[in-house]
Simulated assay, not measured.
Amino acid sequence: MKNGIAFLVLLAFNFCFSQSKFNKADTEKFQKTINSEYADAKKSPLMEEDLKTFKTLEFYPIDAKYFVNAKFVKAKNEKVFEMKTTGTRTPKYIKYGTLYFKLNGVALHLNVYRNIELSKTEEYKDHLFLPFSDLTSGKESYIGGRYIDLKIPKGNTIAVDFNQAYNPYCAYNHKYSCPLVPLENDLNVEIKAGVKTFH
């Protein structure tokens, strides 16, 4: 899987598909699950030397203010494009929509994307990919930004829990090829939630 889609293993970690209220237990379960995966030599993206001493990833304190119910506006007439990655792989995506929300009183928006190949599978036909970077990137969080997995909403709102933001696999191992965060998803605020930088 070293040259595969870096975030696939983490798809199962998202628990905010349909809820509209923050649930701390969901994030605690997310943290426990991701730690368990990373400690497992068969699944872990960690390099061998890091796996030997791994105990837990470092997380920001769980904070309900980083759970938002965003307004979802579906994109129209978008064209499929090749998303740049840290390697030579250029997976095909399409912009599926835009999320509008507020954090600490600041109005923000992020685009969500759909992986063309992934959407052809039954298991991930409703999957949406939310990559983002923010003012913590390169400081407290991974320089390349972080990801959140979502599902296509049935209505015009979608719950986003930044407490469940995770790093791409290339934050841990250079052998992986990971999608780069599009420039339009660089937030001019600090998102002090989710997984912090490694080491």
Score class of each variant (00 low, 15 high):
Phe101Ala: 00
Val9Pro: 10
Lys125Asn: 03
Val106Arg: 15
Ala171Asn: 03
Lys2Leu: 12
Pro168Trp: 03
Phe162Leu: 02
Cys178His: 08
Glu123Lys: 15
Lys65Ser: 14
Asp63Val: 07
Thr197Ser: 11
Arg114His: 02
Met1Gln: 12
Phe129Glu: 02
Gln164Gly: 08
Asn185Asp: 03
Ser20Gln: 14
Val160Asn: 01
Lys65Thr: 15
Val112Ile: 09
Asn111His: 12
Asn77Ser: 12
Leu51Trp: 00
Ser44Ile: 04
Pro168Ser: 11
Phe15Leu: 13
Asp161Ala: 04
Gly144Tyr: 05
Phe15Cys: 09
Lys32Ala: 13
Ala75Lys: 06
Gly194Glu: 02
Ile5Pro: 03
Tyr96Pro: 02
Asn111Tyr: 05
Pro61Asn: 10
Ala75His: 08
Asn104Lys: 15
Val195Gln: 08
Glu48Tyr: 02
Gly144Glu: 11
Ile62Lys: 00
Ala41Cys: 02
Phe22His: 04
Ala75Asp: 06
Leu57Lys: 01
Leu118Gln: 13
Asn185Met: 00
Asp126Gln: 06
Phe59Trp: 14
Arg89Gly: 00
Tyr100Arg: 08
Gln164Ser: 12
Asn111Gln: 12
Lys21Trp: 02
Ser133Gly: 14
Val68Lys: 03
Tyr93Gly: 09
Gly144Asn: 10
Glu82Tyr: 05
Asn35Lys: 06
Glu190Leu: 10
Glu190Val: 09
Asp161Phe: 03
Val106Gly: 02
Arg114Asp: 01
Lys192Arg: 15
Ser18Arg: 04
Ala171Thr: 02
Thr56Ala: 13
Asn35Ser: 02
Thr88His: 05
Tyr169Gln: 10
Lys79Arg: 08
Asn115His: 15
Ala159Pro: 03
Phe15Ile: 10
Arg114Trp: 02
Leu51Ile: 11
